[in-house]
């Protein structure tokens, strides 16, 4: 299967197979006017199979969100057809409105206007806790 090379844009590579659609939705890519390719289950030497997203537009991406969903993703920035920057992603320190607190006693469960904020409590174990009640995500 071939997908055209992009000139100026972003390639999200090494997405864990099956997570491509989730990342597509979370990044709000359906709102963009440009060409976007979501390739599922592409063969990968390193991973066996992987998902890839190619975005044919020079835009800013909130890589923090991606880091939470799939921290092994690489972000490639393409300028004039060349890969000018390859970024690996760290786990974000703070997630806003990505997760919802499950604790029915948390203030975020009753106050609809409050943003749902989680902070990274343990990097090794990838544990996030609610800013308000400290319940584990």
């Amino acid at each position: 299967m071939t997908v055209d090379e992009i000139k100026n844009g972003i390639v999200l590579d090494h997405i864990t197979a099956g997570k491509g659609m989730k990342i597509y939705n979370l990044l709000g890519l359906d709102n963009l006017e440009c060409s976007i390719a979501l390739i599922k289950n592409a063969p990968s030497r390193k991973m066996g199979k992987k998902d890839i997203i190619k975005i044919d537009a020079d835009i800013e991406l909130d890589t923090e969100i991606i880091g939470y969903i799939d921290p092994d993703i690489t972000v490639n920035i393409i300028k004039n057809g060349k890969n000018v920057e390859k970024k690996t992603i760290e786990l974000p320190q703070k997630l806003t409105n990505v997760l919802k607190c499950k604790n029915p006693r948390c203030i975020s469960a009753t106050e609809q206007e409050l943003p749902h904020i989680f902070t990274l409590a343990d990097k090794e174990k990838r544990i996030y806790r609610c800013l308000y009640c400290e319940t584990k995500a």
Partner: peptide
């Protein structure tokens, strides 16, 4: 509700003391 005094402190312009928030 757990975390309510934190929310108050993020919005108040005076000091807030947590006098107990749920089981937290």
């Amino acid at each position: 509700k757990e975390g309510a005094p934190l929310v108050a402190s993020m919005n108040a312009s005076i000091p807030v003391i947590n006098a107990g928030d749920g089981g937290h």
